[in-house]
């Protein structure tokens, strides 16, 4: 489960590193297919502005 903070800039880096291709980034939208997420948190670490937070 990810939380996207309001300062996300939709750069798409998280989508590029997601090993399961679960993140869709539009011009000002970001959507996770959470049903298939394995909580690897690679996206959380890659974010240049720490806009992704894992929610327990």
């Amino acid at each position: 489960m990810k939380i996207v903070r309001e300062w996300c800039m939709y750069c798409g880096e998280c989508a590029g590193v997601c090993p399961r291709c679960l993140i869709e980034v539009g011009e000002a939208t970001i959507t996770f297919d959470e049903s298939s997420c394995k909580d690897c948190e690679i996206c959380v670490q890659a974010c240049p502005v720490r806009a992704l937070i894992k929610e327990e």
Partner: peptide, 10 residues
């Protein structure tokens, strides 16, 4: 898919 070690964060 880009491996984490190959994706620079700018």
């Amino acid at each position: 898919a880009v491996k984490p070690k190959d994706m620079e964060s700018g």
